[in-house]
Amino acid sequence: MASQQLQYSNGNKNYIGYLAWDEKQQGARPGILVIPDAFGLGEHARERADRLAQAGYVALAADIHGDGFLHADLASAISAIQAMYADRAAWRAMATAAFDALSAQPNVDRARLGAIGFCFGGTTCLELARTGAAVGVIAAFHAGLNAPLAEDAGRIRAKVLINHGAEDPLVKPEAIAEFMAEMRREAIDWQFVHHGNTVHSFTEPTASRLGAPAFAYNKSAEDRSWAAMRQLFDETFEAR
């Protein structure tokens, strides 16, 4: 398997992503954008990109803060993502720049593109899809579920998979209901999987270090959610 840093820009900010692929695979492959949690591009997102590369995809783990910056504590990470929530255009420009950088790779099949994201990254997948980007499928893991903008109606072109901890206290029932209403209203091909006995950040082995009961790793939920994503990708891309 091969990997490298990938520099790209949205015109206002420079980013340093992590690109992974299997150099033994011939021809153009489906491309998957991996959007990390609020802390930024760390080992968690790179390892998921490596997993996807081993499965035959070309994966780009995105830099969400610019210049490869990685927040060291939860408070500063939350402050950074709150700024993006307050400026949806800038938030979407960050995601679009990463998506465009992935689709521009010579070994990527531009007709077979997807995105996955974790926590804030999962929410960002929804923001990307709401721009009308040519993303065929998105899979979000323990994502926040924010409301769309009025002008987003009719834009989503992707199949949508949400993997959610059934005991996640950070995502309110009202947000889940509003998300489901959006999916039904837009006639999206969507799935919402509740993982029992599971809270937020269930794919992150180091989640307990945050010192709050809302964050905890759950290996069975991680394995099952990844399998659900792989099944949907195989269905969508017919990847081998």
Rank of each mutant, 00 (worst) to 15 (best):
M1A: 08
Q4C: 13
Q7K: 15
G11V: 11
G17Q: 04
Y18C: 05
D22L: 06
E23I: 09
K24D: 13
G31D: 06
G31V: 00
I32K: 03
D37A: 06
L41R: 09
E47V: 10
A49G: 08
A53M: 09
A55S: 12
A55L: 15
V58P: 04
L60K: 08
H71D: 09
A72T: 08
D73I: 12
A80H: 09
I81P: 02
R88M: 11
A89I: 14
A90L: 06
M94H: 09
T96Y: 03
D100Q: 15
Q105S: 00
R110M: 11
A115F: 04
I116A: 07
G117H: 07
F120T: 09
G121V: 09
G121T: 02
A129G: 03
A139R: 03
A143M: 08
E151P: 00
D152K: 11
R155P: 10
A158Y: 00
K159T: 03
H164D: 02
A166Q: 12
I176T: 14
D189C: 02
F192G: 09
H194L: 08
H195Y: 15
N197V: 00
T198P: 00
S201W: 06
S201D: 13
A207R: 04
L210N: 13
P213C: 05
A216T: 01
Y217W: 04
N218G: 03
A221I: 09
D223S: 11
R224G: 08
A228S: 14
R230S: 07
L232Y: 02
E235T: 06
T236H: 04
F237G: 04
